[in-house]
Design a protein around this nucleic acid. Structure first.
Length: 433
DNA sequence: TTATCTAGACCGGTTCTCCA
DNA sequence: TGGAGAACCGGTCTAGATAA
């Protein structure tokens, strides 16, 4: 049985009226209540953040538990924890006496985990104060709460976890430099992240067919929104059927993407989309479901350009907006409708899940003989890269690309228009340099 | 630097299709 | 009709990428 178990529990804080679901850590001595209270204090953070924090504390508790019978000092033990994260726990013979079997982690990952532990330790300090804990020393402490209080104490005294985020005094520096996390390397990996243009039409035509040989129009439309509209995958799952209109003059589809909760309701009877989903369908905005929920779809805070808290999808090239309309008509007449407002549905009429789309997307990639891999540009996000690059190579300037991709910061689009090594080599060759 | 979203691996349950 | 295999769908976990 593992020394630390994670279970999702319904937690009701004192004086609160409703319970919220949070991950709780259980050791052989019971629930680590201080961590649950810490998570409650951070309940406005994302699901990803809460998961990552819980995972970091879980690793720390497991490591301390594995060293119960060690004669290391507390500082050495915590230093050893940082080393175990960095270099793993297997020796050169691939043997792990601690029975943890951790593999080496990337520097950035280690820093993230240590940052989470640091935050929790700060919270413990705030609750118990800065005095020396009147407890068994760390090595002899048996209760997880006691161990965490000692970790918070040593973190403050010896900066054991995150020296690089604080500013140690000179007399502490010599020790803390031995135990700090390493600096991350500055790295720009050359990778092909745009969808290969030469395969895209074939991908749409032959990738998405079901068992009966019919087109999976739902998936095709989602891919078109990403490839020709530059949408992130998650944004597609927030679109309602009401959010699509047709330009009567050109026949082009006009698509708006609204903020999932605060965006204007399609009906004036409701305050906003949260109100609409709740009262009309007993649903929540999809970014507010837990990450493990089938309806979950993230929201990355795109730049909203309309007062109704939405932005318009800029389909490029324009001819594709007309093709989108034609496919959309076929889709809407053939889809199974369900009790929800979402545009994209699965084979049962329920809102299409991101997870299911990704499975079908990968299958489609394999059908045309490619491998689904983001480094080869065959992941859903690669279409957003293709969109940004297409705008850049068609002569749009940085500000125009920023607006089309709905970035708040003009520099954010640079990653999408970054040239690849072979393109620079080719340019140099053409120039004869 | 920090917070958040995406990708991918692995697993399991259910439903569908084919065939003996 | 029942078994085998494929397809579909969902859950969990971790690492990497992106954006502010």
């Amino acid at each position: 049985m593992p020394s630390v178990l994670k279970l999702n529990v319904a937690f009701t804080a004192p004086h609160a009226t409703t319970a919220i679901r949070l991950p709780a850590l259980f050791t052989e001595n019971g629930l680590l209540i201080s961590h649950l209270r810490f998570l409650y204090s951070k309940r406005n953070k994302s699901q990803s953040w809460i998961e990552r924090n819980t995972f970091a504390i879980q690793l720390l508790l497991k490591f301390i538990d594995a060293h119960q019978h060690s004669d290391m000092s507390a500082t050495e033990l915590l230093q050893s924890f940082v080393d175990a994260l960095n270099f793993g726990t297997l020796d050169s013979q691939q043997i792990d006496e601690l029975n943890l079997y951790w593999f080496p982690r990337r520097v950035a990952d280690v820093n993230t985990l240590l940052s989470h532990i640091n935050l929790y330790c700060d919270y413990i300090d705030g609750v118990y104060g800065h005095e020396l804990p009147n407890l068994n020393p760390l090595r002899r402490a048996t209760k997880a709460e006691e161990r965490i209080r000692w970790c918070a104490y040593y973190k403050r005294q010896a900066n054991c976890f995150l020296n690089h985020l604080n500013h140690p005094s000179p007399n502490k520096f010599s020790m803390s430099r031995r135990v700090q996390a390493p600096s991350a390397h500055v790295l720009s990996v050359e990778s092909v992240s745009r969808f290969p243009d030469e395969h895209f039409e074939r991908f749409l035509q032959y990738g998405f067919t079901n068992q009966a040989g019919k087109f999976d129009l739902c998936s095709i439309l989602i891919v078109m929104l990403m490839h020709y509209g530059g949408l992130r995958l998650s944004e597609c799952f927030h679109i309602y059927t009401h959010d699509v209109a047709i330009d009567n003059k050109t026949g082009a589809a006009l698509i708006s993407v609204f903020h999932p909760s605060d965006g204007a309701s399609p009906s004036p009877d409701f305050t906003n989309r949260r109100d609409f989903l709740n009262l009309q369908f007993h649903l929540k905005p999809r970014n507010e479901y837990p990450r493990s929920h089938r309806l979950y779809a993230g929201w990355k805070g795109s730049l909203l350009t309309a007062r109704n808290l939405s932005f318009n999808v800029m389909i490029f090239p324009h001819i594709k907006a007309i093709e989108f309309t034609e496919l959309l008509r076929d889709y809407l007449t053939s889809r199974i409708n369900g009790d929800h407002p979402f545009l994209f549905t699965n084979s049962k009429g329920q809102p299409e899940s991101k997870k299911n789309f990704i499975k079908k997307y990968q299958k489609a990639i394999e059908r045309i003989g490619l491998v689904s891999n983001k480094h080869q540009g065959t992941s859903p996000h690669s279409h957003r890269h293709s969109y940004g690059y297409r705008l850049a190579t068609s002569g749009f300037n940085q500000l125009e690309i920023q607006k089309a991709m709905h970035h708040k910061n003009p520099d954010s689009c640079l990653v999408y228009i970054k040239p690849q090594d072979d393109e620079i080599r080719e340019k140099a060759r053409v120039l004869g340099l």
